[in-house]
């Protein structure tokens, strides 16, 4: 019961924060709302007792991605005072269309899938099991994905360096 109440509180909170991302007039506020909403998703994972996923959510989305977003904002804006800036341009209707489309796809997918788990008594997956899966059962794809990311990283650096050199 208590879990359910907390779940609902956080679910509504996430929706409110996501609305904040879309509707706030300042880019900075949007980014901060985004962090809040992603952290809320992390809390949802905690409620589902998948701590590893929750912590990964915090680390990757809360810590790294949004920080990069904020950093990029800081370096590229003319006005460092954080004043409101016009974010809605002529692309707004298309963005709305795309958003509705994505939401519809997700909804259809969510409703039509036969979910295997059980929210009444979620199973606690130990980190040992996850690592077993990741490094033994799916070891090769994992390494291939890592190599792909590394290549992308090095490529990005090379592209950036070349532009600087000229």
């Amino acid at each position: 019961m208590a879990t359910e109440v907390i779940w609902w509180i956080f679910a509504l909170g996430i929706i409110a924060l996501s609305a904040g991302v879309v509707f706030s007039r300042s880019v900075i506020h949007s980014a901060i709302f985004l962090i809040g909403s992603l952290a809320g998703v992390g809390v949802m994972f905690v409620i589902l007792t998948v701590e590893f996923l929750a912590l990964t959510q915090f680390l990757i989305y809360g810590g790294a991605v949004t920080v990069l977003v904020l950093l990029a904002l800081m370096l590229t804006r003319a006005d460092p005072s954080g004043r409101a800036e016009k974010v809605n341009g002529p692309q707004a209707p298309f963005a709305l269309l795309a958003g509705i489309g994505v939401a519809a796809v997700l909804l259809v997918a969510a409703l039509s899938t036969e979910w295997a788990g059980n929210t009444e008594s979620p199973t606690n997956i130990a980190i040992e099991a996850i690592s077993q899966r990741l490094f033994e059962d799916f070891g090769l794809p994992f390494i291939l994905a890592s190599v792909l990311l590394l290549v992308a990283l090095v490529g990005a650096i090379i592209v950036a360096r070349q532009e600087e050199g000229e």
Binding site: L75, T76, R77, A160, E163, E164
Partner: peptide
């Protein structure tokens, strides 16, 4: 100004 291809703002 350092022209590194990015549109950065002088402060």
């Amino acid at each position: 100004l350092a022209d590194d291809g990015f549109e950065t703002v002088d402060m």
